[in-house]
């Protein structure tokens, strides 16, 4: 029987962690980007596509990554799927940001 990683109802699980997490700028920006890109009227994809992208993360990533870390990966997948950005553009940008962070 297949069981999708996100489909958790009734699965074995431990105690609930009650700590309230501060929302960070990272969280806010990812949340806002997702909401703009999946806007019901002028978005580029639907929240359903967003869910599908999150659910298709490998199981270890789904559970190890933070909530908005999963989202940012889903946004990446979908903007490439929809042709808003190319894989190459993203890789160039990431390389530029990395070299900026590690000045020679």
């Amino acid at each position: 029987m297949t069981h999708a990683v996100h489909d958790l109802g009734g699965q074995p699980a431990g105690p609930i962690e009650f700590a309230e997490h501060e929302r960070t700028f990272f969280d806010q920006r990812v949340d806002a980007m997702m909401r703009i890109l999946a806007h019901p009227e002028h978005g580029h994809y639907t929240v359903d596509a967003m869910r599908r992208a999150v659910e298709s993360l490998p199981e270890n990533q789904y559970f190890e990554l933070g909530y908005y870390e999963r989202w940012v990966r889903a946004i990446k997948q979908l903007v490439v799927e929809k042709g808003l950005l190319s894989e190459d553009e993203l890789n160039c940008k990431l390389a530029a940001l990395r070299s900026e962070q590690r000045p020679a």
């Binding site: 994809y45 639907t46 359903d48 596509a49 869910r51 599908r52 799927e81 929809k82």
Partner: peptide, 11 residues
């Protein structure tokens, strides 16, 4: 239909 929306179809 969310099963279609998820793949950029009209639903």
């Amino acid at each position: 239909n969310p099963e279609q929306l998820a793949y950029h179809r009209l639903g």
